[in-house]
Nucleic acid binder design. Sequence first.
DNA 1: GACAACAAAGCAACTGCTTGCTTCGTGCTG
DNA 2: CAGCACGAAGCAAGCAGTTGCTTTGTTGTC
Lengths: 193, 193
Amino acid sequence: MTNTAPVDNRRADLVRVAARLFRERGFDGTTTRDIADAVGMRSGSPFYHFKSKQEILAAVMEEGLVAGLPAAEQIAAGELPPRAKFQALVRAHLEIVLGEGHDFIPVLLYDWRRLTPELRERVQVLRDRYDQLWQDVVNELSAAGLLRSDSAVARLLLMGAINYSVLWYKPGQGSNLDQIAEEAVAMFLGPEA
Amino acid sequence: MTNTAPVDNRRADLVRVAARLFRERGFDGTTTRDIADAVGMRSGSPFYHFKSKQEILAAVMEEGLVAGLPAAEQIAAGELPPRAKFQALVRAHLEIVLGEGHDFIPVLLYDWRRLTPELRERVQVLRDRYDQLWQDVVNELSAAGLLRSDSAVARLLLMGAINYSVLWYKPGQGSNLDQIAEEAVAMFLGPEA
DNA sequence: GACAACAAAGCAACTGCTTGCTTCGTGCTG
DNA sequence: CAGCACGAAGCAAGCAGTTGCTTTGTTGTC
């Protein structure tokens, strides 16, 4: 097997390392020198791979969305009954948001406003797919009588409850992801049929 | 009527203006010069009133908590039945988080991590009171059979759903605060008895 | 020898904060 | 009441460090 993608390893390194730093310290709290240091480059070299610091941020967010979408889309398009499907989606989302090494989506949640309008629009395209996917599942739940509403507000409240966990979840302390997913589903959908 | 409190108006101005700027642009996205400009001072003058930029941030957060706590505590200590009490608390919290000119708590949610450990500890004292108050109401709901769980995770999911609205709510566009409060209560507690 | 992938060096703007000084109302004192 | 001290509030100027980014040179590789 020949090496079909020999390059771009350093670029991928930059994105991965930037994601971690952005998550830990925030976008403004991370300098391009920090990122360069963390991958063993000099301070100007990242700009060979990216036009600007903001482009790195956008790349981090897109990486997270591209990596997370397939699993979520597979669940949403699957044949599970509504409640099980919802639980699977919640669990997958928790993994995306809180899983070890998964720094990309937290960065998106934290530093969305730091993107320039153009870059925001670019990333929004992927975000829309993710939101639509959740809306579809919410509509299914509502149609099955498991949820009171199928409005966009209902979806935003649900996603908010889960996304907000980036602010309080500490791995290996308190509930684990499975337990949180169960508790969330129980709270939103009420007792099991 | 003589002017009994002539002073500290400028300091209060600084806090109010800083809250607005911090909310709009974030803590790191706002310079001390921006704040000085907005109240008609020169760049160094805010440091007569505050030791550091971080102290301004802490003052903003404390202002928001001190202003919001009385109303919430009154609701929590009141004699309303559990469901009505919860709805009132949710509505009051939405006002604190989304109401016009209420920039203080959004700043707390956005830029909590920007505080130094010492200042964070100081503000946390007030935050704890607010969290405990919510936990009490959650426990009441659980005891009344209206909620599946009285765990801290349950409270965090609830507060997350509501707090997350700072990221999507646009005044005068879509649902208003009353409607959001109703929808949230209906979703969490299920149909009315 | 051409190109990808950096290093080396630095620029220009910005940032939080400090320092020395001025202005102005207030109260005290002779 | 004149004269003065004094503290609150802020100005003017600038320092020292940081930041994103650019420019030019170098090196390994196909």
